[in-house]
Amino acid sequence: MEFVDIETINTNNKYLRLETDISKLKKSIETVGIINPLVINENNKLIAGGRRYSALKELGINPVPVIKISKNEYEEELISIDENLVRKDLTNMEVEKTLSRGRELYEMLYPEALKYENEDLTVPEYQDIQSELPNDKRSFIDLTAEKTGLSKRVIKSAIEREEKASDKVKELRSLGELNATQTNELIKLDKDDQEKLSDLVHKKSAKDIKNIVKKVKEQGVEATVNEILTTPTLPTEFKSFETLLKRMNKVLGKIIFEDIRADTPEVKKILEGVSTLRINLDQLVESFANPSPKLNAMKSEDFEEDDETNAEAQDTL
């Protein structure tokens, strides 16, 4: 370790996080000092320690402790990536992009290491064998899981989303219109098919997308797109109603099968609600059998429940 003038350090490194909240870090440095020095190369380029650099500069500490390394540009980038991955303020997509680039660099620098696509996460014994290998033979996934605490499945899925998702899918994810689970299904298709489907399916559930992907593989993307465009969409209210019915039938089955009884005012109130619900269900069925605007259904606010009641129902189910 040595000390250098902080003004001579070059911070031109895309992996550095210089603008994040460093208030807690500053307090830590003021209390216990710098535990981990900055990492710079022989040209004083900052490789790791962006937040520490910002904190030291704001505190007016100069010169600053550094460790100088002599590595090639790919090794330097991998060091920056390693530090970036243990941070908590990266978005999911930033993590995925960083993991993908890290995997690419690692496998280029260590060609004897196990390739991530050959990683078998289904055999427990296989994982034990890896931990006994030297680091330059272990897979990027294995080492990264050890460093970050992320599971190997999470890491592998993240890399696959970054490398297999089309530009349109990534755009929808960045806008918050597709989540990771939906994307995991879409990337089972090639990128051209993803481009044709993404705008049509981003509001559908992961389960629905899984079924659509299956259809694409069976009948082709054009036929599937045409089917989506010509098939009436189930209203959101009916989707919610379907979910409620499944939950309700599950609980009712338990009550009836186990003959659960309780002589309390709450149960009497529930049974009154069941009677009202039965009337409205009959009206719903009748409205589809004989459409008529004169049905006297209850207003939607009559069905509202408070957050506490809803939370209790969720816990029960």
Rank of each mutant, 00 (worst) to 15 (best):
F3I: 08
D5N: 14
T20F: 06
K24Q: 15
E30V: 05
I34N: 09
L38Y: 00
N44G: 05
K45A: 02
K45S: 14
K45E: 15
G49K: 12
R52Q: 10
A55M: 04
L56S: 06
K57F: 02
V66Q: 07
I69W: 03
Y74K: 10
I81Y: 04
N84F: 14
L85G: 05
N92I: 12
N92D: 10
T98V: 09
L114Y: 01
N118T: 06
D120T: 02
Q127N: 04
I129F: 14
E132H: 11
K137L: 12
L150W: 09
S157G: 06
I159D: 02
D167N: 09
V169C: 07
E171M: 04
R173H: 10
R173T: 05
S174Y: 02
G176R: 09
E177Y: 12
L186A: 06
I187V: 14
D190F: 01
A206C: 03
I209T: 01
K214F: 03
K217W: 06
K217V: 04
Q219N: 06
G220L: 06
E222A: 13
A223P: 03
T230L: 15
P232H: 07
P235Q: 15
F238L: 15
L244R: 08
L244P: 04
L245S: 09
M248N: 12
N249E: 11
D259E: 15
R261A: 09
A262I: 14
E266C: 07
I270L: 15
V274C: 03
R278W: 02
D282V: 08
Q283H: 09
Q283R: 09
S287I: 12
F288V: 14
S292Q: 12
N296S: 12
M298R: 13
S300F: 00
F303E: 00
E308Y: 14
T309S: 12
N310R: 13
A311K: 14
